[in-house]
Nucleic acid binder design. Structure first.
Lengths: 118, 118
DNA sequence: TCATATACAGAAAAATTTTTCGGTATTCTG
DNA sequence: CAGAATACCGAAAAATTTTTCTGTATATGA
């Protein structure tokens, strides 16, 4: 089988469970991109997150699909086309993503002053 | 200098900023332990999170202090005593921690069925 | 024909995080 | 005195994640 996570998610503690689903570097951003409900093609997602290595987005998209937070539709066309959508389960995480986004906006200055090299 | 994070926190995106503050394996749990506002000694925190390697808790506590989410008080006694408290800034993250905790509780069954080996 | 776009996979390297192990220092208890 | 408790720290090993690179396949457009 392809790339495989050793410990897919953490079932020992509800907090760790939630964290383990989204803590990988770009997963929360992917969910944020898909938040509107509009299906997105992988190339589109790559364009929206240019800082992320494409391979990592592939891997993390795959894990999000495995975990049921994102759904994938493959169109048997050529050139190939596929689309990713946030699932109902994934949508239930959006309030958390929103809250983190908002917190980051509200407290950006503190950390900019602290760690920003301008 | 001692142990040093390469990229302390992520200033490129507000969502990544928030995530980078709490995504390390035990940070959210530490904040959860301190949520009540009661000061905790390191040994107490270790006892509450027995799955975590003590060294990692030390490191992550230190980072939480550096980032201003947790405050540390050292009592110049012998044997040494120190206490950790959540700061006002740290408290502003609690709604997010709470939401993740609650989400984990609500959706535990799905993932238990999916990944739990009983 | 050749380059491009598309989506994705494997492998290996690099970076980072987590864990394990050992060590410092001091006081109190047996 | 030996050992425990206390709070740390450094170094190195292990584990994991992220990045980079290369390769598959097929159609379209120059």
């Amino acid at each position: 089988m392809a790339y495989e996570k050793k410990i897919p998610i953490d079932l020992d503690c509800p907090l760790r469970l939630t964290m383990s689903l989204i803590e990988s570097k770009w997963k929360s951003c992917i969910l944020d991109e898909l938040r509107a409900g509009k299906p997105m093609r992988p190339s589109e997602i790559h364009k929206c997150l240019p800082e992320a290595a494409p391979r990592v987005l592939d891997i993390q998209l795959k894990e999000l699909v495995e975990d049921g937070l994102v759904a994938k539709t493959i169109y048997p066309e050529l050139p190939p086309r596929s689309e990713y959508n946030i699932t109902e389960l994934g949508k239930t995480l959006l309030p958390i993503i929103d809250a983190m986004l908002q917190w980051g906006e509200e407290h950006f200055d503190i950390f900019e002053k602290k760690y920003g090299n301008k």
